[in-house]
Simulated assay, not measured.
Amino acid sequence: MIKVLLFAELQDAAGTDQLEVDMVGATINEVKSWLHTQYNLPSLDQTMVAVNESYAEETYVVREGDVIAFIPPVSGG
């Protein structure tokens, strides 16, 4: 199992700030596709992705126990 952390509008759209999913062996890109299909999450293409608190590429292959955070763009002033 892996833990997926969601922030801002992603959290609002999914109705939760975290999920536990069985996607060990999938790439980050595959996890994003699954999230979009299951939760119709907005703006996943613009999110930054961190795995275990370090930024990761979409080709990263998820391992057991990984914590993946999807961080949408932030605006403000």
Rank of each mutant, 00 (worst) to 15 (best):
residue 57 E to K: 00
residue 34 W to K: 04
residue 31 V to D: 04
residue 37 T to H: 09
residue 63 R to D: 09
residue 14 A to Y: 09
residue 14 A to C: 11
residue 9 E to H: 09
residue 12 D to Q: 10
residue 70 F to T: 00
residue 71 I to T: 09
residue 49 V to N: 08
residue 8 A to V: 05
residue 38 Q to C: 11
residue 36 H to V: 09
residue 15 G to S: 06
residue 43 S to G: 09
residue 9 E to V: 00
residue 55 Y to L: 14
residue 57 E to A: 00
residue 40 N to R: 10
residue 68 I to H: 02
residue 11 Q to I: 00
residue 68 I to K: 01
residue 30 E to H: 13
residue 11 Q to G: 10
residue 33 S to K: 13
residue 31 V to W: 10
residue 59 T to E: 06
residue 70 F to D: 05
residue 65 G to Y: 10
residue 50 A to G: 02
residue 25 G to P: 07
residue 69 A to N: 03
residue 40 N to I: 02
residue 56 A to R: 04
residue 20 E to L: 14
residue 16 T to L: 06
residue 3 K to Y: 07
residue 36 H to Y: 14
residue 37 T to R: 15
residue 54 S to R: 12
residue 46 Q to M: 08
residue 13 A to D: 12
residue 49 V to Y: 09
residue 20 E to M: 13
residue 33 S to F: 11
residue 64 E to I: 09
residue 69 A to F: 00
residue 71 I to A: 02
residue 28 I to L: 03
residue 48 M to L: 07
residue 67 V to L: 13
residue 13 A to N: 06
residue 15 G to Y: 07
residue 50 A to T: 15
residue 53 E to N: 14
residue 52 N to E: 10
residue 10 L to P: 07
residue 48 M to I: 03
residue 62 V to W: 06
residue 47 T to R: 08
residue 45 D to W: 07
residue 64 E to Q: 11
residue 72 P to I: 02
residue 59 T to H: 00
residue 48 M to A: 07
residue 36 H to P: 00
residue 47 T to I: 03
residue 58 E to C: 05
residue 60 Y to A: 09
residue 46 Q to F: 08
residue 66 D to K: 10
residue 3 K to A: 03
residue 43 S to D: 14
residue 63 R to E: 08
residue 36 H to T: 12
residue 19 L to H: 05
residue 43 S to W: 10
residue 27 T to S: 15
residue 45 D to A: 05
residue 71 I to W: 03
residue 4 V to T: 01
residue 61 V to Q: 11
residue 2 I to Y: 01
residue 53 E to I: 13
residue 74 V to S: 15
residue 5 L to W: 06
residue 71 I to F: 01
residue 23 M to W: 06
residue 60 Y to E: 04
residue 19 L to D: 00
residue 64 E to A: 12
residue 32 K to V: 01
residue 62 V to C: 14
residue 12 D to G: 04
residue 6 L to E: 00
residue 18 Q to A: 10
residue 71 I to C: 01
residue 28 I to T: 01
residue 49 V to L: 12
residue 43 S to E: 10
residue 17 D to W: 02
residue 21 V to E: 05
residue 2 I to L: 03
residue 4 V to A: 00
